[in-house]
Write a protein that binds this DNA or RNA. Structure first.
Lengths: 261, 261
DNA sequence: ACGGTTGTTTGACCTGCGTCAACCCTTCAC
DNA sequence: GTGAAGGGTTGACGCAGGTCAAACAACCGT
């Protein structure tokens, strides 16, 4: 029973060369049988509470690779839960330079940047064909006034975002190229593992340029670092396919600095 | 009527050479007549709601210059509202390097990093003698389940923190020295203005090294940039005293890059 | 199968910021 | 008043990472 309020979904694919036929699928979803529920919001709810959450999140949408889920400046209405796929968020400066602020994968939430000004402050772009659940924010607030567990969990998710950002600041503020790349690979590995994928082998969904933007480096620098890691038998790279050969070696890179302190 | 729960305040000044006599003052505070209320939580509450918030925030504490309000690893219990004074937050890497993640002033909230793991993930250190209000987080959650306005405002504050962090990422990821320093000065100026102080003249509460850590630069680089700005008649610097002579000049620096794109 | 587009790698060179060091100023304890 | 300590400024120099360029590999639409 797709509810009609779902049809109010703003066309988040504007500003992109969208096909005539919009990729907007209104499909009944249920958190109660979503296999990502530990990663997303509904943690430790009773059956009754879960049912009420199901009602809230009654629509999901497909976002095609390259399309925007939302763009900076658009009015904020929903928090999005990634059901499958892969996204990047980035902010653009007036002069055209842009900074990737994060890569998000299945089970993670998107859109919390929009709460403060009731309008999004960054762009969320799908790096592969993806599916997201729409969570009307005002209704999420309402429900979290009624369900303490949900409220607390949402606060934790927002707080985790803040802590994650602090981690990226330390990376950008004081790590050298090799540390940044190692941290990046270890982070991806750990997140893939949490989703039941191989910790050692995965495909990058983003370009060298996007990695560089995220890590505060130029694409050539990223490429060179990959090559160097390969020479040192830490990883195997073939285009977007990464095989981590020596995960401890990568971890050691992160702590190398202490030796010369 | 200082409530006894307030006495459970953890000794946040440990790890620092604290005087025998703890600077813990239990004083009745009232949001209802605090002159910072637009900046802090209680925005647009009814008299009745305000009274209930007053009950919640029943204690404030003095933090001496150099002392920690909380440290990474300590259990999370309170959100803190800065009543007066100036703080920095920083995260330490195992090897001793540290990154300043923010400077906070009167009316701003501290401690939201602790929600996600129920334990703080950074240090908050007073850069001058300060006063903070303790806000027991579980009680804030309870109250915000009852007062929609409060709930929404708190979400906005957390979201603003995320957006602020994104701004720092773009600074760290793609700005050159002059842009970073200009952005830093403009940000301080704007925040002092919002508090009724001069936009053009203020005293820095932090050292060159702390500024550098925040901006991803070395202290010498910060010092040189200040000197260069002075030569260019953009500012006057005398130790910690800053006088902005040409605020538009500083703003132009921020947009200079577009000229060569 | 083919040509164009987009992404990646690698090399040669350059420069902005870091490093190291000397010196100065301010503050504070005694 | 004096000395020590902490913070700030300035100069000389080096290098990590950026820039520019060329060639190559993968992908996509037709």
């Amino acid at each position: 029973m797709p509810s009609d309020r779902a049809l109010k979904t703003p066309n988040a694919t504007n500003n992109t060369p969208a096909p005539k036929e919009l990729s907007l699928a209104v499909i009944k979803t249920a958190c109660s049988n979503c296999n990502l529920r530990e990663l997303c919001l509904p943690l430790g709810l009773t059956d009754d509470e879960m049912e009420r959450l199901d009602e809230l999140i009654s629509v999901r949408r497909r976002v095609r690779r390259g399309d925007s889920l939302y763009r900076a400046g658009q009015p904020f209405e929903y928090i999005y839960a990634i059901r499958s796929g892969f996204f990047k968020t980035d902010v653009l400066l007036e002069d055209g330079r842009d900074q990737v602020t994060g890569f998000q994968m299945a089970g993670e939430l998107l859109g919390m940047d929009g709460i403060c000004a009731e309008c999004h402050t960054c762009n969320a772009v799908a790096l592969e064909d993806s599916e997201v659940c729409h969570i009307p924010f005002s209704r999420l607030e309402k429900l979290s006034r009624e369900i303490q567990t949900l409220q607390h969990h949402f606060h934790q998710v927002m707080s985790r975002e803040i802590v994650r950002d602090h981690g990226l600041m330390t990376l950008l503020g004081m790590m050298c190229v090799e540390e940044r790349i190692a941290a990046f690979l270890l982070n991806l590995s750990q997140r893939f593992t949490a989703r039941g994928f191989s910790p050692a082998e995965f495909n990058l969904r983003m370009t060298r340029e996007e990695i560089g933007s995220y890590l505060g480096l130029k694409l050539e620098t990223v490429s060179r670092a990959f090559s160097r890691f390969q020479e040192e038998k830490l990883i195997n790279v073939q285009q977007k396919h990464i095989h981590i050969l020596d995960i401890n070696g990568l971890k050691q890179i992160m702590s190398r600095h202490s030796q010369r302190a």
